[in-house]
Design a protein around this nucleic acid. Structure first.
Length: 471
RNA sequence: GCGCCCUUCGUCUAGUGGACUAGGACACCACCCUUUCACGGUGGGUACACGGGUUCGAAUCCCGUAGGGCGCGCCA
């Protein structure tokens, strides 16, 4: 059975040294989409072999980010460091085979050699003098690291679904350390052992790992293992084209939740960054799963564009169920430590959602525009609303209010015809009446349709609000 | 410094030698719809980095130049 026809196993392998950033999130998404769309597995491994920099908080942040994005993984997340004994055993195996060797060179010597190589215009590579040392030459009480014995001539070819065939001359690569002098494995070694043991068939990750792939394939070969397939996706840049880092305003994935983005909008946006499916822009996660393929992955880096994310978010909000949006608003408030919405007002919010969601680009917008529902009388007016309520306007509202008392059934269309009749009687355009009405009803100059607002608010509350502003 | 990769509207992209007067989406501008704001509709401007080839014909193939990215750790 070839690798291609065996069951698909993808993985996402972040290092827990910080929050889950947008690039990592997209890599995870691609792997997840690919695995889920093809009945494969999606595994999660935490690359925590750097004991000094890995933190449990970062691990937690990664879990939370993935959960919010809705990217579920199969089985337990694997801690790479928990497999350290296995890595050591594999290194011993290579040592015994002669495919790796003990290197006693101290750091200063290595640094000096590399600097010299660079100064001379040679590849920045360190050739260990211990490569061919005999056991009798080994110093007694000095620490040693384990280096892999890499070929010095020829080239290593990487076959990659995105990058094509990439040829790296072996002279660019040195004998990388696979086991540090403290006995812990290095990333490039542990990754290979773990990917192999976990049965990973496709390694999809950022293109910054491309040259690592050359080193890693040396390990596969030394261990006598088959290589998985590779797909190295381009990186995501910030809006200014520079690296999208924390300094450049790159938020953690969880911050997008706090900013009022829907996870499905985020998935939609991220999926379109570096991958495309013809002219399709707005699609569901199910469609993305079905469509996602390696062939349509681009090779050039993409810039992150908040405007487009926001547009997609608006579309997904409009498509979302009303109840779900109410819950999302509640969560957002809870996140900020605000008191829960009372049941009666929650009911109002739900009923007004069709009008509200049409206008919102983010959940924060949604909450903001729902403010008039959630607030109590007397409403505080914003500047524009106050300006709309001129003495004449107030007088008209007073007259209109008494007419509205007699509307038989408190429904939008009845209210609209009543107000239109009144406007006609006064010889005015509807807008001249509707705007002050809106101001009195919502405290703002912008809202869903006034008649809709009145219907949602109900007869008693509507009239009370109008009366409060009429005088 | 050495190596690898990238380059289509401001941004994300479609495009794999003739269907390209280069398509879509976001953003922008104008108009329409209209009780506000949105939504929706119509229209508009703006792109094949540059220079050489190959070819009857090039955004698409080749070479070079420029710009950008990434890698070159006992980090991941």
């Amino acid at each position: 059975m070839t690798a291609a026809s065996s069951p698909l196993v993808c993985r996402f392998a972040p290092s827990p040294t910080g929050y889950l950033h947008i690039g990592g999130a997209r890599t995870a998404l691609f792997n997840w989409l690919y695995a889920r769309g093809r009945g494969g597995k999606f595994l999660l491994r935490i690359e925590d072999t750097d004991r000094a920099r890995s933190t449990p908080e970062a691990t937690e942040a990664i879990f939370n980010g993935l959960k919010w994005l809705g990217l579920d993984w199969d089985g337990e997340a694997v801690s790479q460091y928990s497999r350290v004994e296995r890595h050591r055993a594999a290194a011993r195996e290579l040592l015994e085979k002669g495919a790796a060797y003990r290197c006693y060179s101290p750091a200063e010597e290595i640094d000096a050699a590399r600097e010299a190589a660079r100064a001379e215009g040679r590849p920045q590579r360190f050739d260990s003098p211990w490569r061919d040392a005999k056991p009798e030459d080994w110093p007694a009480d000095k620490p040693w690291a384990v280096r892999i014995r890499a070929p010095r001539e020829g080239a290593t070819v990487i076959r990659d679904h995105v990058q094509g065939e990439v040829v790296i001359q072996n002279e660019q690569l040195d004998d990388m350390i696979i086991l540090r002098s403290d006995g812990d494995p290095t990333y490039n070694f542990a990754v290979v052992v773990d990917d192999h043991d976990m049965g990973v068939t496709l390694v999809m990750r950022g293109v910054d790992h491309l040259t690592n792939t050359a080193r890693q394939s040396l390990v596969y070969r030394a261990m006598g293992w088959d290589l998985p397939e590779f797909a190295h996706v381009p990186l995501i840049h910030g809006p200014d084209g520079a690296k999208f880092s924390k300094r450049h305003g790159a938020p953690a994935v969880e911050n997008y939740r706090d900013m009022g983005y829907l996870p499905e909008a985020m998935r939609n946006y991220l999926a379109r960054l570096g991958w495309s499916h013809g002219d399709d822009e707005v699609f569901s996660t199910e469609q993305a799963m079905e469509w996602f393929n390696l062939e349509s992955l681009g090779k050039s880096p993409a810039r992150f564009d908040f405007a487009k994310l926001e547009d997609l978010n608006a579309r997904h909000i409009r498509a979302a169920e009303d109840e779900r949006l109410v819950e999302a608003v509640e969560e957002l408030r809870a996140l900020r430590g605000e008191a829960p919405i009372p049941a009666a007002k929650r009911e109002l919010l739900l009923r007004s959602m069709p009008g509200l969601k049409e206008r919102a680009r983010t959940l924060t917008d949604l909450e903001d525009s729902a403010g008039y529902l959630l607030k109590d009388r007397p409403l505080d007016l914003d500047e524009k609303a106050a300006a709309l309520l001129s003495p004449e306007a107030k007088a008209r509202i007073a007259r209109l209010t008494s007419l509205l008392q007699h509307v038989s059934e408190w429904k939008a269309e009845n209210l609209e015809s009543a107000v239109k009749d009144y406007a006609e009687a006064e010889g005015m355009k509807l807008g001249k009446i509707a705007q002050p009405l809106r101001a009195a009803l919502t405290g703002r100059s912008v809202s869903p349709g006034v008649f809709e607002v009145m219907e949602v608010l109900g007869r008693a509350e509507s009239l009370a609000r109008l009366e409060a502003q009429a005088s």
